[in-house]
Design a binder for these strands. Sequence first.
RNA 1: UGCGGGUUAGUGUAGUCGGUCAACACGCAGGACUCAUGAUCCUGAGACCGUGGGUUCGAGUCCCACACCCGCUACCA
Length: 677
Amino acid sequence: MKDFKRYMVTSALPYANGPVHLGHIAGVYLPSDIYVRYLRLMKKDVLWVCGSDEHGVPITLKAKKEGKSPQDIVDRYHNIIKKAFEDFGISTDIYSRTTSEMHYKTAQEFFKTLNDKGVFSKKTSKQFFDPEEKMFLADRYLSGTCPHCDHEGAYGDQCENCGTSLNAEDLKNPVSQLSGATPELRETEHWYLPLDEYEPFLKKWILEDHKEWKNTVSGQCRSWFEIGLQPRAVSRDLNWGVPLPVENSEGKVMYVWFDAPIGYISATREHTADWEKYWKDEDTKLVHFIGKDNIVFHSIIFPVMLKAEGSYILPDNVPANQFLNLEGDKISTSRNWAVWLHEYLEEFKGKQDELRYVLAANMPEAKDNDFRWKDYQDKINNELVAVLGNFVNRALVLTQKYYDNIVPECDCTPEDDAIFEQIKTAQQKISDKIEHFRFRDALKEMMDVARLGNKYLADTEPWKLIKTNPERVKTIMNVALQTVASLSVLAEPFLPFTTKRLQKMLNIDAPGWTNAGAKNIMVPGHQTAKAELLFEKVEDEVVEQQVRKLLKTKENNKASEKPQVTPMKKEITFEDFLKSDIRVGVIKSAEKVKKTKKLLAVEVDTGVDTRTVISGIAEHYTPEEIIGKRVVILINLAPKKMRGIESAGMILMGEDADGKLTFISPEDDFHAGATIS
RNA sequence: UGCGGGUUAGUGUAGUCGGUCAACACGCAGGACUCAUGAUCCUGAGACCGUGGGUUCGAGUCCCACACCCGCUACCA
């Protein structure tokens, strides 16, 4: 492997429309922090940057909804996130933001360079423009009448009723979701990054030159290659973002995904005048820590931008993690199903390392993992307290008892030497694992050193020997103290707050990484401070309270989910209504349509005949349980073939706000074919 | 539906090139110890490695099919 002179580490910029939660921490910021702290201990030249991503449409919408400016919104969350990171020991060299002056400058220079080099292609297309908001509308902020089925709630990109994907311009009676105004079709021109031209380069670079990347990352890239890369628009018609630095581009800003990764560069520039060596020198190792949702941006789009610019290096690795679930359910900002970092820090004062430990031990490195409060309690009580905290306490308390906190002399036997050997080996293993982004394994290795210490004490039994061979006990306690001191280095990347306290107790300066396993970190005659417990047990009550809090969130969600009532559709005439032939039908049989998740093929006796209807209810009903059910069915609907089966008619279903479906059934046992009007 | 990832003891996970690979942690059972936050140490029980085929002298490990879970995508008359 190449020997790099320095490291440039970036972590995905958190989007400033909400605070960060444990999923963000476990997936991105904690692994980065462990990695960087380790590199610093190795005395490497390393720079770690991060910052808030503050552009993009969702922020403008949130601002509008709250009657504030986009800047107000991003200020609020930027400050919450920044403070939470600091308090949690996320030790970035700089935490910047993409609304900074330096970022505008850097992003514009970058864009201009690409533009001057003729990298971009330009294309004109027609898009809807909201005259009230004075802005172009992204497809999903448009609604209207579907040109195919006349459904009125169709979105600009798709009709949810008939399922066809649409071109926004084909929508009938389009309405802006933002203002309710009728948008006009206007021509607009956009800049495109020709990803397709870089495909051969990317394929070689990722699939051949970087085989060491996680297979989730290369797998994702491979799937993009299979579809074929397309030019990607990097400009938007919006008034919130970095303005394009080119002529005739009024009202246009950079696509948020174009400017955000440049934020890494801007932050570096803001931090040091010497920024270029971190971004443009081949001897620098560039590493992007991200979550799996960001893979294409960091392994395809941003590298193409860097490559096209010409003077930048490309990432050496993109260690993407999977997602963390919470108590079995997907974390969701909008449903408030999350443990927010800033709230944890409020409620668990001084317990940063406890959380860091649990998250690191449970990091979603290869697949999605689950955070459970019970597991939080178990890991802290049975591992942190019982193994690490206990060993440290035993060593220090014994030293206090026997030697009044003075480090005794050491006269090592081969058994003692073996301990130092093992610590050395562990140190190398931890290094190796961290360098390969295997943080949970690395953490385990570190804990094994504490286990080794516990075993050493159990084997040598100084509390017995003190009566028969006090000379020997001196050496034993010396070895135990050296082990504790080694732990104060080896644990630093994972548990920085604890190691600081530990070093204070030992009354030593922070040793360097390579000192771990040395015999002389604690010099004989040195005076240590009084022993304190490193960790407290987590009581059942604490965990129960958190679980209750989450349950409450669930209940609140249910309650506050005011049935989202869809607006009334356009008035129809009685004659229109009479056109539909709605009947009571009886379900004769049903079976799942193969290879689909939601579709059931249902045989219905309509009185008129028995016919097959495809219904999208398989997630709510099993075929067995609906046989014999009386349902309401629209029978004169034009048949449509789906998945090779012809569906003649439509079973009417009630739909809840959260998407739950239920049959509409007559209250009395009406016969099949009874009309409904 | 397409693509990607996953499916290994009660739980969470390791298993790089196919041959001590069935491992580690927690939990559980029994024992030892008492310096330590009822912590620690030792011993033990617990997995036919999602299912079914195939390649091979030999497969969690390679190939094929299927099932289930997650993400994106499609579909949901």
